[in-house]
C-alpha cells in the first residue's frame, strides 16, 4: 500500500494546519491524518484540539464516533469486505469466514506477518456484483473462496 509515514508531531501539526482553515474542519483534519499516518493515534488528539479550539475529550468523542478512523496503523494491505445485505445474499458471510480463517484473524485485526488488515464495511455501492470488497482502494467483485486464495497469494 502507499507509503505510510510513522508518527511525527511536527509533520502532524503541518497536516492539521493545512486543513484547519476550513469551516467545520474536524473530519477533513482526521481524514488527512489517517491518510498520512494510516490512523489517528491518541497523540494526535491534543494537537487537533488546540487547532480547533475544543477540548481533548471532544476530539476523542469525535474520533471514536466514526467507524473509519483507526487508532493504530494497519498492515501493508487493507481489505475492506462488505458485510451488508446485498452481499450477504450472494455469500458474503462465507467469504468473510474464509478470510478470517485463512488469515487467522478476526475483523479489524492484522495478520501476524503484517501483510493484511481485515475491515468490515456496510455497502460499497457494488451491490449488483457482490460479494464486494476494496483492496487498498481497488474494487473487487464476485468474491468467493477461490478468488480470495488467489488474491492472498499475490500479495506481498
Amino acid at each position: 500500500m502507499a507509503d505510510r509515514e510513522s508518527w511525527n508531531e511536527d509533520r502532524a501539526r503541518g497536516v492539521i494546519a493545512a486543513v484547519a482553515v476550513k469551516e467545520g474542519a474536524a473530519l477533513p483534519i482526521l481524514h488527512a491524518l489517517q491518510h498520512v499516518f494510516g490512523c489517528v493515534p491518541l497523540q494526535a488528539e491534543p494537537l487537533v484540539a488546540s487547532a480547533l479550539n475544543i477540548t481533548r475529550a471532544e476530539v476523542h468523542g469525535i474520533v471514536t464516533f466514526y467507524h473509519e478512523f483507526r487508532r493504530s496503523p494497519p498492515g501493508r494491505h487493507v481489505l475492506r469486505l462488505c458485510r451488508a445485505e446485498a452481499c450477504q445474499a450472494v455469500g458474503a458471510d462465507a467469504v468473510g469466514a474464509h478470510l478470517r480463517s485463512a488469515l487467522a484473524i478476526d475483523w479489524h485485526e492484522t495478520s501476524r506477518d503484517g501483510a493484511m488488515t481485515l475491515e468490515p464495511v456496510f455497502c460499497l455501492g457494488l451491490c449488483a456484483t457482490g460479494p464486494s470488497a476494496l483492496l487498498d482502494g481497488d474494487p473487487i467483485g464476485r468474491l468467493d473462496a477461490a478468488r480470495v486464495d488467489r488474491m492472498l497469494e499475490s500479495l506481498t
Binding site: 445485505e85 446485498a86 455497502c123
Partner: peptide, 12 residues
C-alpha cells in the same frame, strides 16, 4: 451518504 445496502445510484 447513500448508506443503504443495495443502492448505488448516487455513486453511478
Amino acid at each position: 451518504d447513500e448508506g443503504d445496502s443495495g443502492t448505488y445510484a448516487d455513486r453511478m
